[in-house]
């Protein structure tokens, strides 16, 4: 009887702890982007060249977390503390080019800043152009 009670208590503690750990990291604070950044105009026109260049950069730098179609379904995404999101949905696609550019450039938590890795702004705008092709 004592053994059963002890096992029950241990199981309860493990179960409670697992829920606690799960719920701690889930809620994401809104990613605040200044109006200036939101309204920054994309200087690179969206054409086959810029989208192809963006796709190459995406496959090297972004795909391992965000997936090839931006669905956040790649193997590495399961290890992230923050949800990588689904870029095909309106919540992402309704954002301005400037807002996406800002987020790629600055990063937050698991999402690294790409200002130094891709110092040429043109590269990051090309990524934005490629991300637009993910819209469903």
């Amino acid at each position: 009887m004592k053994k059963t009670v002890f096992l029950f208590i241990v199981a309860s503690i493990i179960l409670t702890a697992s829920f606690t750990m799960k719920t701690e990291g889930d809620p994401q604070k809104p990613w605040v982007v200044s109006d200036a950044a939101k309204n920054k105009k994309n200087p690179i026109s969206s054409n086959a060249t810029s989208i192809a260049a963006g796709k190459t950069l995406w496959n090297t730098h972004c795909k391992s977390c965000h997936g090839s179609k931006g669905l956040g379904d790649e193997s590495k995404s399961a290890q992230l503390k923050t949800e990588p999101g689904d870029f095909s949905k309106a919540i992402v696609q309704d954002q301005t080019d400037g807002a996406l550019f800002f987020k790629i450039s600055e990063g937050r938590k698991d999402m690294p800043s790409f200002k130094k890795k891709l110092p040429d702004e043109e590269d990051r705008w090309q990524l934005v152009n490629f991300m637009r092709t993910m819209k469903k």
């Binding site: 690179i44 026109s45 054409n47 060249t49 040429d120």
Partner: peptide, 17 residues
């Protein structure tokens, strides 16, 4: 390495890199 036809359309907006 880059399509010249597409380059010409972009030349007005970006310098040659």
């Amino acid at each position: 390495a880059q399509d010249p036809a597409e380059l010409s359309t972009e030349s007005t907006e970006t310098k040659i890199k």
